[in-house]
Design a binder for these strands. Structure first.
Lengths: 145, 145
DNA sequence: CGAATCAGTAGCATTTTGCAACTTATTCGA
DNA sequence: TCGAATAAGTTGCAAAATGCTACTGATTCG
């Protein structure tokens, strides 16, 4: 997508999905957050076709999620998350937690997310200014204008 | 996707994306959260092609995000979110907040999310058991086994 | 130096998506 | 109650995206 032909220009959700709402982009971001740096490493972890990976890495760079820089040792290139890319952490986290709750059978094993001390990351629940839990029923979209 | 051929069976992020990681599913969910109930309404709001919408609605039902029931008045069918579908709220919210921060120029107008009293929904920041802010740098994936 | 590895490209087959026109059932209004 | 409008898809075909396999030119390692 050439940046300014948004599916729904007023909606931040739609703009975000125009940028990373495809089969692979968020998996690449996930792996970047988990330490992947090289073309081959992204390819191995995701299983994406090589030509598509080339395309996705270019788009992710063009849209400001990744940047390519030269590694300390050697001249080989590396991909690293930008601030905007790292800022997708809450998106990946909520997808993960949704998946844990609804895409695994009870008792079925899955990878988990832990903090620096090895403690599991707690469930992440949105709350309003008064501390009440927020959901689709208790919020609404306020349109422009 | 026929449910048990996951891209990456151990990863909840990948499973979630196998189910709703395409151009349109999350926009349909977004509109369902914002009150859309009928085929035509989804079509009008998203702009998706009608045959693709048919396909997506069927898949969302098959995967347990939506259910179809008969409206009170009249015999016409309606689509409604299931509990699993409503539980995608945090995903939509974090996508929205990412979009607000990174996909709009400073000062550019966009729709906003408000609570029952019309108060803007606050920024949603993941934190660990000790209350510290979590991000990609301070967490890691703990694999199965 | 030679072999292996990395980072892609290129060509082609398959799948997915999009568009426009058509169909069938409801519903609404005179 | 009839006729028109609207809802909810379906169908056929064209265009775009994706995937697979093989190939290429640098790096790097022993």
């Amino acid at each position: 997508m050439n940046v300014p032909d948004w599916t729904d220009p007023d909606c931040p959700v739609a703009r975000a999905l125009d940028l990373i709402g495809d089969r692979w982009s968020l998996l690449v971001i996930r792996d970047a957050m988990d330490g992947a740096r090289s073309f081959t490493e992204f390819q191995r972890r995701t299983g994406i076709a090589r030509n598509i990976l080339t395309d996705r890495l270019r788009k992710l760079i063009a849209h400001g999620f990744l940047e390519q820089h030269t590694a300390e040792s050697g001249r080989r290139k590396e991909y690293a998350l930008t601030e905007a890319g790292r800022d997708l952490f809450p998106v990946i986290l909520t997808l993960r937690q949704w998946g844990e709750r609804h895409a695994f059978a009870p008792g079925e094993a899955h990878s988990t997310l832990v903090d620096q001390h090895g403690e599991p990351v707690p469930e992440f629940v949105p709350s309003g200014v008064d501390g009440s839990v927020l959901g689709a029923e208790t919020t609404r979209v306020h349109k422009i204008g």
